[in-house]
């Protein structure tokens, strides 16, 4: 399974990371290096083995339906790059 330049571009797009064209090919090589190394796992017989879903053996914690949080819009805006009237403001999104 070899990663080519187009795959790198597609994955970078999915991950929303701008990659300058000059970085695409080197990145493809780096990713291939890692993936080739990882390919040794194909030798492991995993037939009938369930995937690990959690390392903790416990029941999923559940909380009661109570309103116990919120009410601090001002605090939420403190680190915002751009905010107005307690809204987060972003470049216009076209639907």
């Amino acid at each position: 399974m070899s990663v080519d330049a187009d795959t790198v571009r597609r994955v970078a797009k999915l991950a929303r990371i701008a990659l300058e064209e000059g970085r695409v090919q080197p990145m493809a090589e780096e990713l291939n290096g890692i993936l080739t190394w990882v390919e040794q796992l194909n030798a492991v017989d995993v037939a009938g083995v369930p995937p690990m879903t959690s390392v903790v053996k416990a029941d999923l914690k559940r909380r009661a339906d109570r309103v116990s949080d919120g009410g601090y819009a001002e605090d939420l805006m403190k680190n915002a790059p751009l905010a107005e009237d307690h809204f987060f403001v972003v470049p216009k999104v076209v639907e």
Partner: peptide
């Protein structure tokens, strides 16, 4: 999260750190 679901609240007033 424990934030309220009431309709029509002030902007971002019913938002927890998790949300």
């Amino acid at each position: 999260s424990g934030a309220s679901t009431t309709f029509g609240g002030e902007p971002n007033a019913q938002v927890s750190l998790v949300d």
